[in-house]
Amino acid sequence: MEILQRPQASHPKLVEDALGKQMLGLLRQIDAACCTVDELTEATEKAFRQYSDAEVMLSFPGLGAQIGPRILAEMGDDQSRFDDARGLKAYAGAAPITRASGKQGRVVQVMCPG
Rank of each mutant, 00 (worst) to 15 (best):
I67K: 07
L88T: 01
A65M: 00
V107C: 11
M57W: 08
F82R: 04
E45W: 01
G93H: 03
P113W: 04
P69D: 02
M1L: 10
D17Q: 14
G114R: 08
G68L: 04
D38Y: 04
V107G: 02
V110R: 13
A73N: 05
G64P: 03
Q22T: 05
G62D: 04
A18W: 03
D17K: 09
T36S: 13
K46Y: 12
K13R: 10
G102M: 06
S101G: 11
A85S: 15
G76K: 00
Q29P: 03
R6F: 08
A73Y: 01
L88P: 10
L88M: 15
L19M: 09
K89V: 11
E2V: 08
D77Q: 06
D38F: 07
C35T: 09
K103Q: 07
C35P: 00
E16K: 07
Q22H: 14
F60L: 12
T44Y: 08
A92N: 00
Q29A: 10
P7L: 13
L40D: 07
Q109P: 03
A33P: 00
K46G: 05
D53N: 05
Q29E: 15
A65E: 01
D77A: 12
A43M: 02
S80L: 11
G64C: 03
I97V: 15
G93W: 03
G87S: 12
I3H: 05
M1P: 15
T44F: 07
A94K: 09
V15K: 02
H11S: 05
E39F: 08
G68C: 06
V15N: 03
S59T: 03
L27R: 07
L4A: 13
V37E: 10
Y91S: 06
L19G: 06
S59A: 11
C34F: 11
G114L: 14
L4P: 03
K46T: 13
G68V: 02
D78G: 12
Q8H: 13
A18Y: 09
L27G: 04
D31E: 13
G76L: 02
R106N: 12
L72D: 00
F48H: 03
V108R: 03
G64D: 02
I97K: 12
P69R: 01
M1G: 15
V56W: 02
K13V: 14
S80V: 03
G20I: 05
V107N: 05
A90H: 12
A33Q: 11
I67M: 11
D84C: 15
P69S: 06
G102N: 01
Q8V: 09
L26V: 04
K21L: 14
C35N: 13
F48C: 06
Q29W: 01
P96V: 01
D17M: 12
C35L: 14
P12K: 02
D83M: 04
T44C: 10
R49M: 09
E42L: 14
K89A: 15
I3Y: 07
R6D: 02
A54P: 01
M1W: 07
M111E: 09
G20E: 07
A73G: 11
Q29H: 14
I30P: 05
E2I: 01
L40W: 01
L24Q: 10
L58C: 08
P113I: 08
